[in-house]
């Protein structure tokens, strides 16, 4: 969006210089793109400017408070958790859905009932985030030990003789009973000897479930786009299947991997619904977007809400810039 502002300014400059050089005929192209530009200005550029402005005012947008709202990110524990979780989501969901999608794309290429299996894996793509969350609430459902388990995960766990686990509540799944350690200097305590961030991981799983099919379908198309002659040629040259994957397949589909990863990154940065429906952001599952809604509409702190929005915007900018650069370079990427 910041790029959009820059482009607007450049566009205006070009309009003026064109009119200056070629008279009214230079205006004609702008007559055609004008409506689109007006809508962009109204619904994209102005809100961005407005949001940036609001982020420097206090909660009720009456007084200028400087960087106070941004200080929130470094002073407030809740903001720290949201930032940490966003990072977890960004790396975890993107990595696993692209990785898993790639593995499925390559392996399913050699499976007999490929279309059926791919259809099944792709299907969650069609479910809304809220709908998916409702489904997964059943999967993660928890009843105290001794009662019949409604959730399939806990039903499996108890059937195997374990204790039911509060998947969306627990921040840690302890596997060892060791003493917590304190990192010297910063006073940071690590107390989870097992799987940390259990509930956040549980929420991320939903997103992975939703996104893997998308990654798989696009990557599968890219894998199938590799001429079979190339693979045959590598085979005559004595390459083994893993070598073919690492040296031929992977480099050739790298542009597609970049596109898919970018798309997932943008989706993940916007994640809100899953957290909101599953936990409401409690038990350390908050992400930036859910915190933003909370600040904005629950606490009515427009300043802080806007500051979070600006941060999210800034986080997307590098992704957008790299994508645009790739498009400009002709999507070659080789």
């Amino acid at each position: 969006m910041a790029v959009a502002i820059g482009r607007g300014a450049i566009a205006l400059g070009i309009i003026l210089s064109n009119v200056y050089r070629r008279g009214l005929r230079g205006l004609l192209p702008w007559f055609y793109v004008g409506p689109a530009l007006v809508f962009l200005l109204l619904y994209l550029v102005l809100p961005v400017v407005q949001t940036i402005y609001l982020s420097f005012l206090d909660g009720r947008s009456q007084q200028f408070v400087g960087w106070d709202n941004y200080r929130f990110f470094v002073t407030h524990a809740a903001a720290g958790i949201a930032l940490r979780n966003n990072l977890l989501w960004l790396v975890g969901v993107t990595g696993v859905s692209v990785g898993l999608g790639l593995v499925l794309a390559v392996l399913l290429d050699r499976v007999r009932y490929e279309p059926i299996i791919k259809g099944l894996i792709f299907m969650p793509m069609a479910i809304s985030f809220v709908g998916a969350s409702v489904i997964w609430r059943f999967v993660y459902a928890y009843r105290p030990a001794g009662r019949e388990q409604l959730g399939i995960l806990n039903a499996i766990v108890t059937a195997l003789g374990g204790q039911p686990i509060g998947w969306t509540v627990e921040t840690c799944w302890p596997l060892a009973d060791w003493e917590p350690i304190t990192l010297p200097g910063v006073g940071w305590v690590w107390s989870c000897w097992g799987i940390p961030f259990l509930n956040t991981l549980a929420l991320m799983t939903i997103m992975i479930w939703l996104q893997t099919g998308f990654c798989m379908v696009l990557l599968s198309a890219a894998v199938k786009g590799i001429p079979s002659d190339l693979v045959d040629a590598a085979r005559v040259d004595g390459a083994t299947e893993p070598q073919i994957f690492w040296r031929i397949t992977l480099p050739l589909i790298r542009p597609t991997i970049a596109v898919v990863a970018t798309t997932v990154v943008i989706v993940v940065l916007k994640v809100f619904d899953i957290v909101w429906v599953m936990t409401g952001g409690h038990q350390e599952t908050e992400v930036l977007a859910s915190r933003m809604i909370k600040e904005m509409f629950n606490f009515r702190d427009f300043g802080r809400g806007s500051a979070i929005a600006v941060l999210l915007l800034l986080a997307v900018v590098p992704v957008m810039v790299s994508t645009m650069r790739r498009f400009r370079d002709g999507e070659d990427g080789l």
Partner: peptide, 12 residues
């Protein structure tokens, strides 16, 4: 060794 119709050179 084989020479393929479309040469099958590795583009990368």
């Amino acid at each position: 060794a084989m020479v393929f119709q479309n040469y099958a050179l590795f583009p990368h």
